[in-house]
Design a protein around this nucleic acid. Structure first.
Lengths: 137, 137
DNA sequence: GTTGTTGCAAAGAATTTGCAACATA
DNA sequence: TATGTTGCAAATTCTTTGCAACAAC
């Protein structure tokens, strides 16, 4: 894994790298699954760092908005996962929750072709695969 | 559009075709966009039919579970849309909300190929395109 | 009659907002 | 110092549950 400079990532997103934000992003970066605001709040709280739930919510929204995090719906809650800057898709393990990024390949052609035939002006698309990962299968 | 027998659809889903359920499914069938439980509740209420919010929620969950409805996340709310029985994907207009079903085409190949290369056992997948429909573009 | 269904009121749960104290550039 | 940030408490909102009355088979 490439070294990750959390403070720089925050600055790039237009956010001051405060102690709390760094703690949130560090925790997300260390995870291989998507985490919810509540997950992060308990996790940070256990580790003693005093970060408020409100701050966790605000940090996550801002980072998702900035494209630093991908979002996933998980049983009525919003999950967040660190992601690469380039466009990508996901392989989500329904058992352990691990999320792997994968390239779109044929999906991108499908999007173009489909949009053209329906005269649809594409602004974005999303394609995810759910199942069991190598370890859980 | 093929004629739609709402009571039969309900029975197939293992639900008694009560007045309230028929009203809910009728309203969904008449819509070209995904509707939330709250949407449906107000709509049915305006039309005078007395259907409780609880019933709307319960009907929607049951129908989604039975595969009669597709679900979409819309700003923290769950949207529901009538769907065909066969596997399909969507074209969602971000302006007017219209949802069109489309076939997967290359997507299906991509899913197989990707899963194989990552040794992933697929249980489902989802691919949706967002943008402006013909009329809104 | 038996079993499924409804809907109110209350409970639950996630998320947002107001605002005064605080930290950073 | 000016502006961005925090976090508590309260408010919002969506959704679920308990339960007694009711409807369908």
């Amino acid at each position: 894994m490439a070294t990750l400079d959390v403070p720089v990532l925050l600055r790039r997103a237009g956010l001051r790298p405060t102690t709390q934000r760094v703690a949130v992003l560090d925790a997300i970066a260390a995870a291989s699954t998507a985490l919810t605001a509540q997950d992060l709040y308990s996790q940070l709280r256990e580790r003693g760092g005093g970060t408020g739930l409100t701050t966790v919510y605000r940090t996550l929204s801002a980072l998702a908005e900035a494209g630093v995090l991908d979002t996933f719906e998980q049983a009525g809650e919003q999950g967040y996962r660190l992601c690469s800057a380039d466009h990508h898709h996901h392989l989500v393990c329904v058992q352990c929750g691990v999320v792997e990024e994968v390239e779109g390949g044929e999906v991108e052609d499908w999007v173009k072709r489909t949009a053209r035939s329906r005269r649809f002006r594409v602004s974005s698309h999303r394609a995810d695969i759910y199942g069991r990962c190598r370890r859980c299968a």
